[in-house]
Nucleic acid binder design. Sequence first.
DNA 1: AGCTACCTTTGGATCGTTCTAATTCGGTAT
DNA 2: ATACCGAATTAGAACGATCCAAAGGTAGCT
Lengths: 350, 350
Amino acid sequence: MSSHTPIGRKVTLNDIAAGCSVSRATVSLVLRGSPLVNKHTRARVEEELRRQGYVYNRAAANLRRRTSSSIALVLNDLTNPFFAEFAAGVDQTLGEAGFVTLLGCTSESATREQAVLSSLLEHGPGGIILSPAEHSNAHDVLAAVGTQAPLLLFNRELGGTMPEFAHWDQLMLDNQHGARLATEHLIARGHRRIAFFGGHLDSSSCRQRHAGYVQAMQAARLTIEPHWRIECAPTRLEAAHQTSALFSSTPAPTAAVCYNDAVALGLMLGLNQRGLRPGKDFALTGFDDIAEAALGMPPLTTLSAAPRERGQQAAQLILQRLHEPQADSRKTIASVQLIVRESSCPPPTT
Amino acid sequence: MSSHTPIGRKVTLNDIAAGCSVSRATVSLVLRGSPLVNKHTRARVEEELRRQGYVYNRAAANLRRRTSSSIALVLNDLTNPFFAEFAAGVDQTLGEAGFVTLLGCTSESATREQAVLSSLLEHGPGGIILSPAEHSNAHDVLAAVGTQAPLLLFNRELGGTMPEFAHWDQLMLDNQHGARLATEHLIARGHRRIAFFGGHLDSSSCRQRHAGYVQAMQAARLTIEPHWRIECAPTRLEAAHQTSALFSSTPAPTAAVCYNDAVALGLMLGLNQRGLRPGKDFALTGFDDIAEAALGMPPLTTLSAAPRERGQQAAQLILQRLHEPQADSRKTIASVQLIVRESSCPPPTT
DNA sequence: AGCTACCTTTGGATCGTTCTAATTCGGTAT
DNA sequence: ATACCGAATTAGAACGATCCAAAGGTAGCT
């Protein structure tokens, strides 16, 4: 309770050097485990380090060496479990490599993204991992980041044209292949009339997933009715509302590939309201494998992007880039995995 | 695609100074908006700053001024939506104050906590917000942190005795009051036989919540059967398994105050398996208000700690502490709010 | 002794900023 | 002339580390 702890003046190399009468340079060598220093003096110095409770000042070292030991992680939505898990993965791998994570949240606002990016840049991160906000565009990002630090784009493409000389790396999910897997799975279960449900046309991920669906359908020589593509905002509520659109014509589809888990859960709600039992009378799949997917009624067949692993991968990619700054920029597409649960039943036998 | 972008050498004050033939000092004054500089030269300098694309090197400034512009945020589990939301709140408020968040995840390991803390300390944060790992203890934390930076404990108490001279601030949730509110609510709905379900005895939050439950029961002069306190790990699965313990004696309780939402959701599962409809035949409450709580079958009555607001509050507390390092350490207890949903029905009328 | 070689240690400059104590300069009072 | 003023600018030493070139010491060999 006492308020009388003088905040300890920080111990520096000079204090240690003075404390055991060697030079600053020697202490520095000891710290970095150089083989140059005599083991006798090393012991003395190490003892003194302990005694005075020295803590290394990485900022000073970074200044002198013109290096950095931090990576900025800028996320559009930390509240989303997918990104939280991703962040945990990033932080873990960075930590293992001796880097520290500078966090920044943009809350899906391109304006905040600008502010966050330039604020973080002042702290001189060695690189940046950015999951862009909804309407963020390449031009503004370039203006904020410049060539100060390499950038890795995650999860979303940037609006606008990619500037020629900014060689940014990318880590994206294999939306197309994922949707294809889901569709093929439904086909294998015996479905022939399969709809694509939810999402917005102008979102790149939705277009990609739809393309995967089309691919699978065509490969199986199944016809795609145009009114089987139903657009809606990727929320539970909207999806529930749009359920009826699925049954506006006969014969109605017996299954749907949904844009994501939220939409799929909404569709389940809508089906229940129509007296149809999802996973019994109608099959459906999601995308993302959010926590609720496994717990739904019924549990949802979906695609997992393994967000934690993606975080680790992102960290590795940016660290690699630090290691060879001049290498060609690369675009990595992470595969997604089909998680089969009960929602993807065979079609009713009637 | 070209690999030929030389990473731009960083522009410094010297470059700007040379570029418009003033001294480094003047440029520095301009940057910090000092009234000393003539507005004509200010304009010239600002033009040059833009022209060369200068970015401020806060690390260098911090070194010189012996200040810091970062706060370390060390969390036991970023994967938990509660902490993710908390982190978002912290980052937001810190950002607004011109600080940057250094993230560190410990994954509930006290060993990793040690490593993370000392790694983060080397980056010289101005303060630390720590939500301790499960078995973290005061002694080790003190050893890692020393007096380098003020510490704010969040959410959990540390094991071991609080060292006398380390005046650490605390921000805790009002577990006891929350559990009391939930219990009182069930009593008001007409329940008389109420159990306390889940959690571990050795966790401080569980003890506090149980105390609140006892308080409410005693205030209402209701008897508490000892076998109505059922211990289990705070996971869905464990909770489902322990459900039968509730009904091992007659008359069985008609309601349960659960340690947290995960446990409550597990209990719902267990009830369903016994043919009991939660929210109809048996009432229950949770704690935390995780996202799934609102979407459960039925929606779960629970206590919300408003994690985002707690994050903002934590950030404010640590910033205050930076402002007056010598003030007495304080312990803040954040109130929690009862969210009434359908799971807390009146007892069956039979 | 002188020369080389090796092992260890070190002074001083440096990274990019800020701070302190001048310094410059036109103008005004003495 | 001299002194003094205020406003604007600046040289140079910090901050805490690292790097470089050079120096001190010991040992072996002519």
